[in-house]
Write a protein that binds this DNA or RNA. Structure first.
Lengths: 256, 256
DNA sequence: CGGCAAGTTGAGCCAGGTCAACTCCGGTGG
DNA sequence: CCACCGGAGTTGACCTGGCTCAACTTGCCG
């Protein structure tokens, strides 16, 4: 009798989307990996205990958003990284101090993988190897890209950058879509891009008042002027001046 | 006749330090990898052309400091990441926009590896695989850690953090050493931690005036009070208040 | 030993943080 | 179904840390 793909995997989106890790695996590999793994449903605020991470330091994100949070002595909190569907979070041999806390920012589904079986599968299966290798490099450059945003950009630019980050994540397939959903709360967003929630709110308003975006709901925005938003995100300060120059048309007329 | 390790590799520190990639390889693997690779000496400001990176997207750092720089439309420059001895920079399949420019911050030696041979060796040699996997994860978490510094810390805290980052890099062996050398210019340091060079200078002075560090030369500092510096780096604001409380001793006596 | 880039110092200003008051929304129980 | 409640988000007023600009000093390299 042929070996059957485990039911749990058959229902998991990581198995269906061909560019994800589990989709590369054979039924026998899935059975082995599945036997030693634990999937879990998380709700907002759920975090992984140190013991859990010691035993299952490899976490595959099936849906939802996870975050890596650092808390400073005086209570300032930072969201250092976001993880979404398809990310494989490998926390092996990362010292506790550097690691931070892995916390769900909303309802999420994850699969905690046994490191030894995971390792075995990766070594044996070149396609799977390729996928997680690409994913890890993607995570690295996402973090580096994020550092760029944080280092020198100002508030409006950071927010614009973040909107594109969201857009890239969800609608990688539909490049022309101008509807973007923000998958996290304002509070978390602020902590991720290193600003105050008040400032985030003000910046959304400013983009809206300039006619560049429209706030459909708290979690859904429509980009009305993609190139302008792109220029802001890239730190082209002339955008803001252009708007200033375009608006006073009436005044110029009044001089005539 | 036994296969000889290539002379170039015999002279390379990556081959001698047992925790580095090349040290895991057999002579035959080294010969193969070496044949298709190009080593290079760099001086400050040297950068890799896009064509060079297309052909050799994998760069091993033998000595010196490389940086990944992003330049915004209006000229603001950010150093998004630093790479030092032992780092393997893998830029394969990273889009140009995200990648930034790879630029040396001082004299440096690198080895540009053929991606195909590199891939082959990695797949065949589990020890080598382990080393570069660990290195890539290390890079990821270094970038995440750096994001934490940039997001919410203030100037003094970022500088303190950076000093520990330097200390960690060089003297990983000697934990009690209080002498730290800063391997990059003030200007580059400022761009890395997202501040102005003027502010960097002022923060160095402030740490010095508090007796926490001493500036030996521009590139060498001595930490006089490691715990205090650590607390500042971790964002414990009570440190600064403590100093304020300790200093006015004389005033208290004058009240007696 | 001159020339230039890097680093430092000072003065003034502004983007964004802080604090407080308010509104909005989703969940809960009567 | 509605009243209530608490947390999230928003708005306004104020304030300050760090950016900016300019002048100066230092250190490096020919």
């Amino acid at each position: 009798m042929a070996i059957e793909t485990p039911l749990r995997c058959k229902q998991c989106s990581l198995y269906f989307e061909s560019d994800n890790f589990c989709a590369q695996l054979s039924p026998i590999e899935l059975v082995n990996l599945n036997r030693e793994s634990r999937s879990a449903k998380l709700k907002r605020g759920d975090s992984f205990s140190d013991e859990s991470l010691a035993q299952w330091p490899v976490v595959a994100v099936e849906s939802g958003v996870l975050s890596l949070q650092h808390i400073m002595q005086d209570g300032r909190k930072t969201i250092a990284a976001l993880f979404m569907r398809g990310d494989i979070i490998d926390l092996r041999s990362i010292s506790d101090r550097k690691r931070g806390n892995l916390i769900a920012l909303g309802k999420a589904r994850v699969c905690r993988l046994s490191p030894s079986i995971f390792e075995k599968v990766v070594k044996a299966n070149p396609d799977a190897h390729q996928v997680i290798w690409d994913n890890l490099r993607e995570q690295t450059f996402r973090a580096i890209e994020h550092s760029v945003d944080l280092a020198k950009k100002q508030a409006l630019e950071k927010l614009a950058s973040f909107i594109f980050e969201c857009r890239h994540h969800e609608g990688a397939n539909d490049k022309s879509s101008s509807i973007v959903s923000i998958p996290i709360r304002r509070l978390d967003l602020a902590e991720y891009i290193g600003m105050q929630p008040e400032t985030v709110s003000r910046c959304f308003r400013e983009l809206e008042s300039k006619g560049i975006i429209e706030l459909e709901t708290l979690t859904t925005i429509v980009i009305k002027n993609i190139p302008a938003l792109r220029r802001i995100a890239n730190g082209d300060r002339s955008v803001e001046e252009n708007v200033k120059l375009e608006n006073p048309d009436m005044k110029i007329i009044s001089f005539a």
